[in-house]
Amino acid sequence: MPGTCKGMQTELTKPQSRRDFIRGILRNVFLAVLACFGGTVILRKVCLKADGADHGKACSGCPDLVRCKSPYSWLARPVSTRRTVWQLDPAKCIQCGRCATNCVLRISAVKCVHRFEMCGYCKLCFGFFQPGADTLTSAAENQMCPTGAIRRKFIEEPYYEYTIDESLCIGCGRCVKTCGAFGNGSLILQVRHDLCVNCNECSIARNCPAGAYRRVPADEPYLFKPASQNT
């Protein structure tokens, strides 16, 4: 019996009908389209941006993903082996508190990050103490942080070191707000990439009132404001 042992039995063995003919043509058209798409993906365009990271080479996406000036950009658009991840720009953030509640993770991937090099090591830290704190002690009712995630450690008179316990931080940004308004602004919110699952569309990004979120290259995943601006 012909074909009994052959698993891949198709109508190749049957006479070709007109229907199959049309099918074949359309199939080849689609294969060609997908091949072109694949081709643009693999070949990519040559970077023409004079100060671009890939100038003269195949585009792998600029570090800042700026608008591309290549005349071929309509033909081949930037494709990158370089991945992107979500990050929030602290310069735009208004500490609305949605970072704490809008992440798809049960406890937000956004945490408060302390840039020590900008910190004043103040005895009265605006990020740490409630405005009406009775005494400058670490008593819970004195603290700004709802979960007590900020640790205060005496260094020497009058300096105190503040560190964030990220396992407790929920990313609400209350400390960030007051430190920014009255202190040096050394506390900022950032998406922590060891926690973030890198959603195709970040759930916080679409709810952020300030439009602070954007895709950044995965090899430079943080937007710390450089300390030089502060000194």
Partner: peptide, 8 residues
């Protein structure tokens, strides 16, 4: 054309 498509 500002959006970079990840290869994956």
């Amino acid at each position: 054309n500002q959006y970079v498509l990840p290869l994956s």
